[in-house]
Computed example of a mutant assay.
Amino acid sequence: MFRRTKSETDTTVPAEPQGKPGGKGRPTPTRKEAEAARKAALRKPRNRKEASAYRREKVRTERAKMQDAMRTGDDRYLPAADKGPVRRFARDYVDARYSVMEFALPVLLVVSLVGVVFSAQFPWLAGIVNLLFLVMIVLIALDWFLLSAGLRKAVTMKFPKESTKGLGFYAVRRTMQMRRWRLPKPMVKRGEKPS
């Protein structure tokens, strides 16, 4: 008697709401939904098992955000040692240049391997290996000094009010890693000016 016909139900279905161009793209939650979400976030775990599961899940999500930030350079989720515009500038400064320290480990590994393998057959090779080690150490020290001094000068020009404490060691530590294994990932190409 009071049933609707099929044609009436089809016509009364509202169309999908169109969001405003500057809108958030989703409807505002009702008060009941917002309170339930807030209470769920504040709810304490009932036992140790739930607490450890909650803690593990929280650590896992934070670690995933941090790893993603290491790939993309998102400053919000980077570790405290890598956060801030000064640290980003230091990373870009290091990544934009070639460095002796970057290639020191592979070169020293090859030189020491050659010295160990062939020193019995060629006794004079030990002197050359020692000389190469000494030359590499001097080049690394010179590169370290030039990198620290250049970075400190560039940072004081770009960020005059920021402290440069610990920045040289941060840059040197990054330089010691090969470019493809650096984290956060390099955002500039070699030879490019850091922004």
Rank of each mutant, 00 (worst) to 15 (best):
A36T: 10
A36F: 08
A41V: 03
A41G: 12
L42M: 12
R43H: 11
K44Y: 06
K44F: 05
K44I: 07
R48L: 14
R48I: 11
R48G: 15
K49I: 10
K49W: 03
K49Q: 13
E50H: 05
S52C: 06
S52M: 14
S52W: 08
S52K: 15
A53F: 04
Y54H: 12
R56D: 12
E57Y: 04
K58C: 04
K58W: 06
K58Q: 12
K58D: 06
V59H: 11
E62Y: 08
E62P: 01
R63H: 13
R63F: 07
A64N: 09
A64F: 04
A64C: 00
A64P: 01
K65N: 13
K65Q: 13
D68C: 09
A69G: 11
A69Y: 03
A69K: 09
R71M: 12
T72C: 06
T72H: 05
T72Y: 04
D74I: 01
D74C: 07
D74Y: 00
D74E: 13
R76S: 08
R76C: 00
P79L: 13
A80D: 12
A80R: 09
K83S: 06
G84D: 04
P85E: 15
V86R: 07
R87T: 03
R88T: 14
R88C: 08
F89A: 07
Y93W: 15
V94L: 07
D95Q: 01
A96Q: 08
A96H: 04
R97T: 04
R97H: 10
S99P: 00
V100H: 00
M101Q: 10
E102S: 03
A104S: 14
L105K: 12
P106C: 02
P106W: 05
V107N: 00
L108A: 11
V111Y: 01
S112Y: 02
S112A: 07
L113E: 01
F118V: 03
A120N: 05
A120L: 04
Q121P: 00
F122G: 00
F122N: 09
F122Y: 13
A126I: 10
A126Q: 13
N130A: 15
L132G: 02
F133R: 07
L134K: 13
L134P: 02
L139N: 04
L139E: 08
I140D: 10
